[in-house]
């Protein structure tokens, strides 16, 4: 039994991908935790900003929405959508966007709009919001996904946010002069993209799973030949995340069962 949860290792794994000085386009949920924990541990000069216009808020309390009043406090500047979304594409800055989606394909293209078609819809999701803009304009994108075959699909029902398009040079050909997904962080593993083909491969699997399980939960052929086991979260990483970032466990959710049991005594 691990002394950490999937949400905890996801937040920390994504946080490890952040560099000091990055300009982080955060959504809510795990991306808030990843950005905040990275700032507290190794990237104190990273800046978190929100599409709604809040630039570098103090984040004394975790926002639950990008329009949460907590993103407007202690900021360097409060602006607007047009200003914040323009910042995504600023060529001077390494802007890194955290995104999630309902479906992903092997090139990291994302669907957050619908299943089926407009004529015959089977399911509806909220839509792009700023995700398409971040995927189009940011320097890089880190994607959070729940690892399930129905989400990792051969073909998206709807391409909301551009990843590596059809692989190789196709993203540049489409007209994007930078950007593209850097990694996909799931509840099982961290995946990256091949330098040339731009296809997803398994980079690190968490200690509680194995490459075979990851491949079986992925709906397309996944290269697992380069896979390594991830190092588990350290005690100090967990302590920062739990007591410094989300003490109410608003996003982290329940403590690991072994830990919860230990806390009773």
């Amino acid at each position: 039994m691990e002394n950490y949860t999937a949400n905890e290792i996801m937040a920390l794994s994504a946080g490890r991908l952040v560099k000091n000085g990055d300009i982080l386009f955060a959504g809510t949920g795990l991306s808030m935790l990843a950005a905040t924990v990275a700032k507290r541990i190794h990237a104190p000069e990273a800046v978190v900003f929100f599409e709604t216009g809040g630039i570098d808020p103090s984040l004394d309390e975790l926002p639950l929405a990008v329009a949460d009043p907590r993103v407007m406090v202690g900021t360097s500047i409060n602006t607007s959508l047009v200003d914040a979304l323009s910042l995504l594409g600023h060529p001077k800055f390494r802007t890194i966007a955290f995104l999630g989606a309902a479906q992903i394909d092997c090139y990291g293209n994302l669907n957050s709009t619908l299943l089926g078609t407009y004529e015959h819809p089977r399911q509806r999701f909220p839509g792009s919001g700023g995700a398409c803009d971040a995927a189009s304009m940011a320097y890089g994108v880190i994607i959070f996904m729940q690892h399930q075959r129905r989400r990792f699909v051969e073909k998206l029902d709807y391409l909301t946010s551009p990843g590596w398009m059809t692989g190789g040079d196709s993203r540049r050909q489409a007209g994007f002069d930078r950007g593209g997904p850097i990694a996909v962080v799931t509840n099982l593993c961290v995946m990256k993209f091949d330098e040339h083909t731009k296809m997803m491969y398994l980079d690190e699997y968490y200690p509680f799973t194995d490459p075979g399980k990851v491949a079986s939960e992925t709906g397309f052929d996944l290269d697992i030949s380069r896979a390594r086991m991830a190092s588990p979260p350290s005690e100090s990483e967990l302590a920062t995340l739990r007591s410094g970032v989300d003490p109410q466990r608003l996003i982290l959710g329940p403590m690991p069962t072994s830990q919860a049991a230990a806390d009773k005594f």
Binding site: L85, G89, T113, C132, D133, S136, Y158, S161, M165, F176
Partner: peptide, 14 residues
């Protein structure tokens, strides 16, 4: 804008 090139936001209509 260039945001959204080659996506279904451009290709499809509700």
């Amino acid at each position: 804008t260039k945001s959204g090139l080659n996506t279904d936001i451009v290709r499809r209509s509700g």
